[in-house]
């Protein structure tokens, strides 16, 4: 399998980030607290704020998972960020341009 590979160009694997147990557990605890918080807030009537609070907490949790558990914070690869941003951007296009129709209809 390796007969074509150029051994002289073989470099050792670059230093990958190895997450420490302490920081991983810390992130995990924050995530659990957020879960408890968002479930608790749901029982309080905040009017339209319920939606905003719930989605803000969810986004905060998602960002924590992406940055720390998925190692995006430590990667030297800019492309990973680009892929994530593109996916979110195109999802945003789908949602907003579809909703642009529903929210401006003159008939129901």
């Amino acid at each position: 399998m390796t007969e074509h590979s150029n051994a002289s160009q073989n470099t050792a694997t670059p230093h990958e980030h190895i997450s420490s147990i302490g920081s991983s557990v810390a992130i995990w605890i924050v995530l659990l607290i957020c879960t408890a918080l968002t479930a608790g807030v749901a029982f309080i009537d905040l009017g339209p704020l319920n939606t905003i609070v719930a989605l803000t907490i969810a986004t905060f949790k998602a960002i924590l998972v992406v940055l720390f558990f998925m190692h995006v914070k430590y990667t030297h690869e800019k492309l990973t960020g680009l892929v994530i941003v593109s996916a979110i951007f195109f999802l945003f296009l789908l949602l907003t341009l579809s909703m642009a129709d529903y929210t401006t209809r003159l008939w129901h």
Partner: peptide, 9 residues
Amino acid sequence: LLHHFVTEE
């Protein structure tokens, strides 16, 4: 390391 790659990285 698969044949069509030059380096592991």
